[in-house]
Simulated assay, not measured.
Amino acid sequence: MQTLTAKDLTLGYGEDIIIDDLNITIPKGEITVLIGGNGCGKSTLLRSLARLLKPKSGDVVLDGEHIAKMGTKDVAKKLSILPQGPVTPEGLSVMELVKQGRHPYRGFLKQWSNDDENAVNNALEATNMMEFKDRSVDSLSGGQRQRAWIAMTLAQETDTILLDEPTTYLDMTHQIDVLDLLFELNEKDGRTIVMVLHDLNLACRYAHHIVAIRDKQVFAQGKPEEIVTCKLVHEVFQMKCDVTFDPMFGTPMCIPHGRGRCIYANGAGASQSAIN
């Protein structure tokens, strides 16, 4: 199982600094969710962790090696990323898309192997997409399409998967469907999953570890039940709220309001005013 760490990381575009001197270690074998306001640098950080964005300074270290010095295929055998809103070439079938995940293992003269075939079939089975393997990706529903893309990342057979807002543009049913799938992949295979989510309540429900980004830095990180409070929501999202507990899972649940009152609640029903 790989370790993934950012050391003294500064990221930006042109003269604009988005992330400044950030340090973070992604817990192995857990689901980590990056949260924060729009434009805070969540997606920028994710892209840098996947070596899609060159840091202005600092390093990303994957399994003890500086990722910038690793070969492209070597990185792709250890870490896969699903960007936000990926575009599929018109007419591409689900099977053809999932086969793209085997690219890091393919050479110019290398024949398609049993290992490749097994990896693709296993990915289709894990995502319940086998029955759609001959369908064109652009004919699928939003949830099915997202599962097809996740199948492609699974075919890559990496221990670590990064996903940028995997539930964007999906209705509530398909959001839960996709997040349940990722949760099962973590539970069954022990894969390290890092994703950006906008829905704080879903982040709390599915994450083992949450990283809140604000002012170009890590504002807070830890287990949802330890760090997600009214104060954090107010500081990170500039929103006042009540924080109670999800009655089904016991995870923190944020209830926004605009009356200037904020309540911490615990399982026993106790509460206290936090922000006036």
Rank of each mutant, 00 (worst) to 15 (best):
F249A: 03
T251G: 01
S113G: 07
L163Y: 06
N122E: 12
D242R: 11
P89W: 15
T127I: 04
V211Q: 14
T127Y: 00
Q111I: 04
S139A: 05
G36E: 08
H234Q: 06
E125D: 12
N118R: 15
L154Y: 07
C241L: 08
L82N: 09
T244Y: 03
D199S: 03
H257Q: 15
D164Q: 00
P83H: 01
T5A: 08
M152L: 01
V218T: 05
D215K: 15
D138F: 00
E131V: 06
A50G: 10
K78D: 05
Q84P: 14
C241Q: 08
Q111V: 08
V211T: 14
G101N: 12
T158I: 08
G91V: 01
I150G: 01
S80M: 10
A126M: 13
D215N: 15
D242H: 12
N118Y: 09
V211C: 13
D215M: 10
G258D: 14
M70W: 11
L62E: 05
M152I: 05
F245M: 06
V137I: 10
G41A: 02
E131L: 11
L34A: 09
L62P: 00
V137E: 02
N266W: 13
K77H: 07
E131D: 12
E65R: 05
K7M: 07
T5R: 14
L181D: 12
K73F: 05
L46Y: 06
K77A: 09
A155I: 00
P166T: 10
Y264Q: 15
C262Y: 05
P89H: 13
T25I: 06
G258P: 08
L109K: 05
R145P: 00
G37A: 13
A270T: 12
Q146S: 03
Q2L: 02
V196G: 03
H103N: 11
T44G: 06
L46T: 04
G269H: 02
G71I: 09
W112P: 12
D74S: 13
G12N: 04
D16C: 04
T3M: 10
S113P: 02
D199N: 08
T244K: 04
D116Y: 08
I35K: 03
R47T: 04
H103Q: 11
N186A: 02
Y105M: 02
A212Y: 13
M70N: 13
L200W: 10
A76D: 03
V94F: 13
D21P: 00
Q175L: 03
Q111T: 09
I193K: 02
R51D: 14
S141M: 12
C241D: 11
I150E: 02
V137Q: 06
K77F: 06
V211S: 12
K188A: 06
V87R: 14
R102H: 02
T127H: 07
P252Y: 08
D177Q: 12
K99M: 15
R102N: 00
D16I: 02
E117A: 14
V33S: 04
L22A: 09
G190H: 01
T5N: 11
T3A: 15
L163E: 01
M195I: 11
L79V: 09
P224I: 14
A155K: 05
L182C: 10
P252F: 04
E96W: 05
Q175W: 05
F132T: 06
D246E: 08
Y169K: 08
H209N: 13
H103T: 15
G260Y: 06
D16V: 04
R261W: 10
S43C: 01
L124S: 03
L182P: 13
H198S: 06
H208Y: 08
Q272V: 15
S136T: 10
